[in-house]
Design a protein around this nucleic acid. Sequence first.
DNA 1: CTGAAAGCGCTTACAG
DNA 2: CTGAAAGCGCTTACAG
Lengths: 353, 353
Amino acid sequence: MDIKRPVSKTASLRDVAAKAGIGIATASSVLNGSRSNTRVSEATRKRIVDAARELRYHPNAVARALAGHPTKTLGVLFGLPRVTIAESNPFAFAVIEGILAGAAKEGYNVTLFTEPWVDAAQSLGKMRDGRVDGVIVIAASSQSDILPTLSEFGVPAVALAAAASDSPVPAVDVDNHAGSRMAVNHLLELGHRRIAHLQGDDTLSSAVRSRDGFLQALRDAGIEAAEGYVPAGTYEEKSGYERAIFLLERPDPPTAIVAANDVLAIAAIQAAHDRNVRVPEDLSVVGFDDIPMAAFIDPPLTTVHQDLLGMGTKAVRVLMQVLRGEATPGEPFLFMPVLVVRKSTAAPAVQSL
Amino acid sequence: MDIKRPVSKTASLRDVAAKAGIGIATASSVLNGSRSNTRVSEATRKRIVDAARELRYHPNAVARALAGHPTKTLGVLFGLPRVTIAESNPFAFAVIEGILAGAAKEGYNVTLFTEPWVDAAQSLGKMRDGRVDGVIVIAASSQSDILPTLSEFGVPAVALAAAASDSPVPAVDVDNHAGSRMAVNHLLELGHRRIAHLQGDDTLSSAVRSRDGFLQALRDAGIEAAEGYVPAGTYEEKSGYERAIFLLERPDPPTAIVAANDVLAIAAIQAAHDRNVRVPEDLSVVGFDDIPMAAFIDPPLTTVHQDLLGMGTKAVRVLMQVLRGEATPGEPFLFMPVLVVRKSTAAPAVQSL
DNA sequence: CTGAAAGCGCTTACAG
DNA sequence: CTGAAAGCGCTTACAG
C-alpha cells in the first residue's frame, strides 16, 4: 500500500540554519530550547527566529523523539481481552474524557490503541515502539499478563479501574467495596432483608470488590444472603436481564437487587417490567456508576455515583509522576463514590422475614 | 522537566543483526518486510527470525516514521474554536467510536489532539510534525481557517460534520437539510401549522443546512414561519431552554418545535414542563441526532436519527483513499438520516390557523 | 543473495 | 558565544 506523506514538506532545522547563516545546533538551541547554554547573542537569535517564521518552521516531533525527547503523547489501552474501546460503553468514554482533560493540562496528546492486548509476546512491542511516553490501562482483567508485563519491562503505566492491593503498577480506581456497602445499607435502612446481587465479570477486580462489599455489609447486619442470591455473570445487559429473571422467578424472590453497574440495574428493571413486578413497589434496584442515562430511565435509578472524569484526570497525574521518576503511592488511589437516591428504591411492600 | 523513557530498552535491528551474524539491511528486509528483493536464503532468514524472537525485537515506530514510513496513526481534531473533545458531548464520542472502529479495521491507531486549533500559524505545525499520517476534523467552524489551511499545505484530511459544497477537503456528513424536512413534514401531517425552529450555531454548516431545510419544507407546504419563530442561538442546552421559554411566552406560541439537535429538544421539553405546557398535548417537539438518552426521557423523544458511528467509519475510509492517493468525490458524502417517531409529537390540541 | 553507506530531522556532548 | 560531529533506529538505493 502506497501511503503518501503531506505534499508540502515543512522546513527543517537545516533550512532555517542555512537561511539565517548559522549552524544547525545553534538554531536548535534557540528554536527548540534544547541545550542548557542558551547564551546566544540577540542579533543571531533574531536572525534565527525570523528565518523560522518566514519558513513556517515547526520541529518534527518524530525526529525529536528519535533523538531522545519525550513524545508528549500518552497511550490508552482498554484492558479487557479481545475488546477495544470501540465496542465500548458510557463508562469507557467518561473515563477517556477525564484522561483528555488531564492530558490537555499537561500538554499531552492521547493515542487510543485500537488493537486489543493479546499477550506480552504479541503486544508488548507496541507499547514501547516509541510512540508514547507511557500508557494508561483501563479495566485490565486480572487474568491478563498486561500489567505485570508492562511493569517488568519498565514501561511507564498506570492501571485505571483495576486496582489490586498487589498491583504491579500504580493504580487509581473507585472504592467498589465501599460503594456496595452504601447500596446495601440504604436498602437495609429501607427495611429490606432479602437482597440479591448482580455481579460483574469476576476476572475484573472491580466486580470482586463490589461483591465482597455486598457480602460484607450483609454480614455486618447479621444477614446471610440466600443460596443463589449472588449469581455469577458479566457486566453486560443480557447477563443482567437473564439473572434478574432467574431471581424474580424464584419461590423466594428478593425484594431488592444491588447491581454492579447501571447497565445491569437497567436490565433488572426491564426484567421486572416484563414480569409485571413493579419497581420500586415490589422490587428495589440500586445501580453503580451513575451513567448519564441513569437519571432519565423510568423510574429514575438510585445508584452509586463514581467520578469517572476525576479518575481519568487523576490517572494522568499519576502517570506524570511516574514519568518524572517521582515516587508514587504503593497502594491504589481510591475515589470514594456517593450514593444518589432517586426513585428505584423504596421500602419493601411486604415486610420480609 | 525530566521525563524518563522506558527502563529496559528494546533490542534494535543492529542487535539482532549482530546476533544473527548478518547485515542490518538484510535483517530489516526479513523482519520488517522492507525492500522489494526479499530473496533471502531460508537458512539466514531463520537465523534472523530466531535472533529477533530471542531478543524480543520489535521495530521502533518512531525510527521507521523518520525513515519515511507511514506512522499508521491518524489524528482527530475537534474543529470548534477553543473547544476540545474533552469538553464534549454524546455526539463527539459516538463519532469517535465510529472512527475507532474504522481505524481498527485499517490497522491504525488514533490520536486525539487535546489542544484546540487556533490558527494556521499556531496550529498547522502540529498537524504535520510527523506524528500522524492524516487527520479527521470534526465539526469545523466555517469561520475557521483550519480546512483551507490543511488543504493548502497538503495535509491529508477529511471533514466530518462540516460539509460544504465548496469544501477544500473531502467531507462526510449527514444530510441535515433532508433531516429537517422530515421533521417538518411529520409535524405537518400531524396537522401542525405553527412550527418554530431552534437552530444551532450558524458558524456550523450543519446548523445552516438544518435551518434551510426547515424553511424549505415550510415553503413547500405554502406556509410562512411567523416572525421570530426561528430565533438564533447555539447548540447548547442553555440556549435551547431560553429560546423555548421565549417562544412559549409569545402571544402566539408555536404548537410544535423542530430542534437542531437532541440537546436543544430536551431543553425545550424541560422549558415546556417548567411553564406547564404539556408535551405532546400542547406542544410537539422533534429532535435531531437520536442520542442514547433520547429514548429514555419523558416523553421519549421523536427525533431524526443519524448514523454517527457509520459516519465516523466512513470518514476513516475516505481518509485512507486520500492517503493512497486515490481520487475522492468532489461533493460531500451525505448520510441520509431517518425519522424515529416516539412520544414527543402528536396532533395539535387546538387546530391551529 | 547480502552488505556498506547515506539519509530522515533532530539533540547532545565536545570543541573551539 | 557558536559550529562540526556523532548518534537515535530505521529504510532505501546502490554495489557487489
